[in-house]
Structure formats: structure tokens, C-alpha cells
Amino acid sequence: MANIDYYLGTISPYCYLAANRLEELAARHGAKVNYKPVDLLQLFSRTGGTPPADRHPSRLEYRAQELTRWAEVLQMPFHLKPAFWPVNAAPSSYAVIAAQKADPTNTGALVQGFLKAVWAEQRDISDDQVIREILSANGYDPQLADTGLLVGAETYERNLEQAVEDGAFGAPFYVVRESGQRFWGQDRLDLLDRHLGNL
């Protein structure tokens, strides 16, 4: 069975656009997905990237066009400038980490729940009540928002270190543990699918 380490940001528009396609292809190939939320701003800083706010206007304009195009192609509701972005991604990341530890069977839906809240529903996923509601809506105990803080914080930091070691520099970023092959971006999922079929 292949293991896919999925480095993600709970406020990343490209992770949102990935939707549930990773889970679908993992199921087809009998692969296991390990969800690893990371602090994307720190990851950019550690690997030579530039935060969106500091990018050249031409890059920002292209990003806006690209996100809108992909949302149309994938037929996903999308707000280019959501009401609550950027926000502190740590609390929602801690919740994902705690939920995966409690029951990994629905982590993908939970991750997408947070992403959809930002980019489609314009909700503030740094708000404790919103986090509890999203946990509950995806079958998790809403108290994980509180009880998972310590473990979440420690794992969040470890995820960043592992992401750097694995060669990740953005999100979504997929690493197939058995082969060491890396795939960056929701538009590389077809290549990941093909690779898993050849293992």
C-alpha cells in the first residue's frame, strides 16, 4: 500500500480547488493519505518562496486569473477575495491534526470543510465557534478544538520540518513515501494518479 504525505494549508485556495480528487485516486489505488497541515508562510520563507502579499503585481494578476479559471473548470463556488483571508491557519490546522489522530477515516472531508468555509462560504476559520461547527459537521467531536491544542501545536511544527526535509515548498504538495516522487499543485493530481498506477 502506497503512503501519500499531503502537505496542505487550511487557507490555501489551491488546496480548496483540489477538492476530494486526492481521496478518490487514493481509494482507487488503495493508498493511504497522511494529512500534514503546515504554516505556509514559514514554508515559503524556509524554501525561497514569497508570500502572496509580497509578490510582484504581475504574479498576483496571473494568480487571480488562474484561480478563477480553475474554479470555473471544476465548477466550484469560489470567492477570489473572501471576507476572511488571510487568517491565522494554526487553530484549524490543530483541529485537523487532532481529528486525524482521533479517527483518520474522514480527515479529507474535514480538510475540505475548512477550505470550503474560506473560499466558498466566506467564514472565519480562525474563530473557535466556526472550527467547532466544521468539526461537528464532519462527524468529529467539536471539543477537539480545545483538547487537541498541545498535540496539534507540536505536530504542526514537526510537519513544517518534515515538509522542508521532503522538498515541499508550497501547497498542495504530495509526496509518495515509497518512491520519493513529489507532486506540487492540484493540477498535478493526474500525474500522481498515473504514478500510483505504476507502483
Rank of each mutant, 00 (worst) to 15 (best):
A153I: 02
V38N: 02
R46L: 15
L80M: 06
E121D: 15
A120Y: 06
T105H: 13
E154T: 07
L110K: 03
G30F: 13
P91K: 03
G139F: 12
R55V: 08
G48R: 05
T147S: 14
A153F: 12
D127T: 03
T107E: 10
L40S: 05
S45W: 13
S92N: 01
S58R: 03
K32D: 11
S58C: 04
Y62I: 01
G139S: 10
R69F: 14
R59Q: 11
N138E: 06
P82I: 03
L74N: 01
Q65G: 02
P82E: 01
W70I: 08
T105V: 05
Y35F: 15
R59M: 11
R158Q: 15
F84E: 04
V151Y: 05
S126D: 09
P104I: 03
D128P: 12
V33R: 05
N159R: 02
V38P: 00
L60N: 02
V111I: 13
D39S: 11
K101C: 02
L22D: 05
Q42V: 04
A98Q: 02
S92F: 10
V130N: 00
Q143S: 14
A53M: 13
A117D: 09
H56C: 00
L41V: 08
G48H: 11
Q75H: 15
E121M: 10
A120L: 00
T50W: 13
H56Q: 07
Q143G: 10
A26V: 02
G108D: 05
A71L: 12
Q129D: 15
R46N: 11
I131H: 04
D103F: 13
I97V: 08
E61S: 10
R46S: 13
A19C: 03
P142T: 04
V130M: 05
L80A: 09
A95D: 03
L160N: 01
A83W: 02
A27K: 10
L149R: 11
Y140R: 00
P142E: 10
A31N: 06
L110N: 01
L80C: 05
N138K: 01
A83S: 04
D127L: 10
P51N: 10
Y62F: 15
V33D: 07
R59W: 11
A117K: 05
A99Y: 10
V33E: 09
T68C: 11
L110E: 06
V111R: 03
T155I: 09
A31W: 11
E157T: 13
F44D: 02
G148H: 05
Q65E: 12
A26R: 02
S92K: 01
F78P: 00
Y156C: 04
L43Y: 08
I97W: 10
A117Y: 12
N106E: 14
S45K: 15
Q112A: 07
L115D: 05
I97G: 00
I125M: 07
L144Y: 11
A99K: 05
Q112I: 07
V118K: 00
L150S: 14
N20T: 14
P57L: 07
K36S: 06
L67D: 05
P142F: 12
Q143D: 15
R63I: 06
G48F: 14
K101L: 04
A64K: 08
G30R: 04
E72F: 12
L60K: 01
D54I: 08
F78R: 00
L80P: 06
L40I: 15
A117T: 07
P51G: 06
A102I: 02
L41C: 06
N138F: 09
S93G: 12
